[in-house]
Design a protein around this nucleic acid. Structure first.
Lengths: 258, 258
DNA sequence: ATGTCTTTGTGAACGCGTGCACAAAGATGG
DNA sequence: CCATCTTTGTGCACGCGTTCACAAAGACAT
């Protein structure tokens, strides 16, 4: 999981647990696939398998939305697609701005899944004047100076930050001040936001490190230095390690300076 | 969160809770920043603030690693950087392959944070023969035919999938068969893997949908159709909604066909 | 050496999320 | 109309994760 909710003690919005909300998009995707294959109904067992979850969990998740199933039959695919879409707020259009059009920002702008679910890229914003006007994914890049104007005139409430880490907080502050209340952060930094603003982060580096941890475990303890209590001598080695790391990249660049 | 662990009932590896493991990279980043500013020690309160977590949680997290702090003083920054790095397995080099060099794959290949933490891009792999040999981020793209050979000869155990959704499972199977035991999946699909293989997924679309849910809630119930029990009439509208969606993009393309 | 002050490490309580297991509900066939 | 069979919806128990609150530990000054 690359993600992770940020802040906010797992508030239960309208009785729907946060964990359930996080799974709804998964169900929706599986249901959409079924819908395209013109499958009329699906059982909790089948749908759960398609979404990669436990069937009991799925049923409980759906129970928070209401009783949309028919016992002995299953769930009406089309109907469920509509209900989940509505619950997630996907029946309306969400204008989104992407700030920081480097490699990653450009990739996001080209992302097909963006438009497919009610999300519309309203603008691409970058701090580099040389980028201004350049078309990326068919949309002209605009300069950061325009940020507030763009947000307000388009009624944007969701912002995507794909800038280098150093610029992220500053961009975040401007987005929030301009009226953005939901932020998807790709920069490797902890963003500080006022109450009422949601931040979700996607951090490639963190995901890899988590995988590395499990990978190391799988490889067995044999390769490691010592499995017991850490030797005091290790303290000396510490300086050397970080000394090496003090090189040019200190976690700073997200993907490419915008 | 883009993230999300997949499968596996939160196994507690070596007594370290999964939730703690997921936060270690966060602490490590904050500590590295402190290290670069030559800060010798840090209190749990300060570090927690920098990492965006509760100080009690941080202390408990560290307690799983051992007693590395000094009461009345705090934690030795360099020492802690070393300990966490070691715990996460970052003191060794992890060769990684990226499969699917579209927009996203290229962005990942250029990602600076990759190399900075012991991860080394061993190879870029793409199914498009026209891509073969083309340098991306200074590395020549190799054809999918070479996949097994690359994995085995480089001892790769971590693979990154950035292909379209349709190709993901197939690529995954080949990676696993070749010896990869940890996968970071960017394709919007549920991957099925044998036991012993870890999968973490990063799904932009899901993150946005979660944000949209909260955004809708913040906007208030007033804008919605009806807050009460769903009208049976809605069932009729359902067909129309999914009918529209049945267009060209059905969630399929990740970022760009490789 | 002794007292004070800071900060860690952790026992305990609480709440959320998960999974089991089953009763209720409805479809289906005779 | 009744019996049977399938599948939902959920009460309940359990375990993980979070947070509080405080005792233990060490630094530091006198």
């Amino acid at each position: 999981m690359a993600t992770g909710r940020t802040h906010r003690p797992a508030t239960r919005s309208r009785g729907i647990p946060e964990a359930t909300v996080a799974r709804l998009p998964l169900y929706l995707r599986a249901l959409t696939a079924l819908s395209e294959r013109s499958v009329p109904t699906v059982s909790s067992e089948e749908l759960a398998a398609a979404a990669g979850v436990n069937s009991a969990k799925l049923r409980k998740d759906f129970s928070y939305l209401g009783s949309y199933g028919t016992r002995g039959v299953g769930y009406d695919v089309e109907y469920l697609v509509y209900q989940i879409s509505r619950e997630l707020g996907l029946t309306q259009d969400w204008p989104v701005v992407i700030v920081g059009i480097g490699n990653l920002g450009a990739a996001l702008a080209n992302y097909g899944g963006f438009a497919s679910r009610g999300f519309r890229v309203a603008a691409l914003i970058d701090a580099d004047p040389a980028m201004a006007g350049k078309p990326v994914a068919g949309i002209g890049v605009q300069h950061t100076d325009e940020l507030e104007h763009i947000i307000e005139s388009n009624g944007v409430s969701i912002g995507v930050i794909a800038t280098p880490a150093g610029a992220a907080q500053q961009v975040c502050d401007r987005l929030v001040a301009a009226g953005v209340t939901s932020i998807l952060n790709f920069a490797p930094t902890v963003l500080t936001v006022p109450d009422g603003v949601d931040v979700r982060k996607v951090d490639l580096s963190i995901e890899l490190q988590i995988l590395a941890f499990h990978e190391q475990r799988k490889a067995g303890e044999d390769g490691g230095p010592d499995g017991g209590p850490p030797s005091p001598a290790a303290r000396a080695a510490a300086a050397a390690v970080t000394g090496h790391r003090k090189g040019p990249d200190g976690d700073v660049p997200a993907v490419m300076p915008a």
